[in-house]
Design a protein around this nucleic acid. Structure first.
Lengths: 201, 201
DNA sequence: CTACCTTTGTGAAGAATTTCACAAGCCCAA
DNA sequence: TTGGGCTTGTGAAATTCTTCACAAAGGTAG
């Protein structure tokens, strides 16, 4: 989140930002900002604040964003389509190198500059293109099965949009986005009125 | 998350579940399960566990899911399309009652059994249909502007997919899903190898 | 009815996170 | 060069969250 705002400030030509300013932007406290950043190093200058451009670069490196990541999308349905064209991915250094589906009617249909590929190719492609990340946009039913296949193929990080609970071996990272659960969270907050304070997202 | 698993167990006809069993399913500890549930009441039976069906009903009520929620989708692009057809929403009691866009070329085009409506109608529709929730699937540029419009129209909860930071008045709930940020989290975990333990999602 | 096995609910202990508060350091102006 | 105004980095305090551990209670078999 800090990176997001710092890039913004950097784009506007702002040279430094104080913990106070970052805290206001991110909806947290100055002390929190300082503690968070100090975990990774001592980036600020006393009396002046943090050098925006430099800190941006540091955070990019910490997050492992100094190089492009190749990503495959598994599932050529509506959600897959939306994600494949999602500007935010490319903007932030994630390149979609392939879209896969196991429905023979979808395999071969055009997809941007490429075509939807068969799952059978996945193993080969991941090995040859050194892809490490996959976005999973398939129905829940066989999500675990497909994840196992991805892991065997060498995928090391999975962003899962299927509303299913998935197990992965410890060396594989998994992030699940469950859109229905997000709505349920809102339902809870609406139902319980002002007594619950929403967290900044 | 508990609700998700309990519904699953209920569907399979399981009558009771111990905190141990729920903990294993959710990737947490029995003590955590008991503390979490005890916050809302005393649902279990000693020596036996929690009554699955009954607890499911309790959690639904706690989350405010005992009635249907009407939801509008703002933005008739790829993401809007994916969300409007998302089975998970309807399955869990969220009914999409309208899709809106401010692009005159999109307004009026067919959308499922309805058509894409103009943003100008939104005010009127929200008031008459008593809609309280909106899903925001538009580009970041004018996200804040559209949110302000939604809030004025009476929307009280917003699920935001635009990769922008949005401000809302305190009585409005906001959840943001930032897909690029999720990938960045994975990038961080991959970059820092096994030293970081992924959280269950 | 009793003995025993099981599992909850919950204070207390322990761990982690956040906030406080201030010395140390940087910049600038005179 | 000195002094004053800011702001960081960080131990220590305060708070919050998680785990422990056990009394209380339901179930069952004999």
């Amino acid at each position: 989140m800090y990176l997001r705002y710092l890039e913004d400030l950097d784009g506007r030509g702002q040279l430094t930002a104080s913990s106070d300013e970052l805290a206001q932007l991110c909806g947290t406290t100055p002390a929190q900002v300082r503690k968070d950043l100090s975990f990774f190093g001592s980036f600020g200058k006393r009396g002046l604040g943090y050098p925006v451009h430099e800190l941006t670069a540091h955070l990019r490196e910490i997050l492992g964003l100094e190089h492009e990541w190749k990503v495959i999308i598994v599932g050529a349905g509506k959600i897959g389509a939306a994600l494949a064209n999602y500007r935010g991915f490319r903007q932030r250094g994630f390149t979609v190198v392939g879209v896969y589906d196991n429905d023979p009617r979808k395999v071969g249909t055009p997809w941007g500059e490429s075509v939807v590929r068969s799952m059978d190719q996945l193993d080969h492609d991941v090995a040859h293109e050194e892809v490490r990340m996959a976005v999973l946009a398939i129905p829940s039913e066989n999500a675990q099965q497909v994840v196992d296949l991805l892991v065997r193929a060498g995928i090391r990080a999975i962003l899962n949009f299927a509303p299913a609970q998935i197990a992965v071996p410890p060396q594989v990272s998994l992030q699940s986005v469950n859109m229905a659960m997000e709505l349920e969270r809102l339902s809870f907050e609406l139902t319980h009125g002002e007594s619950i304070q929403a967290v900044a997202g």
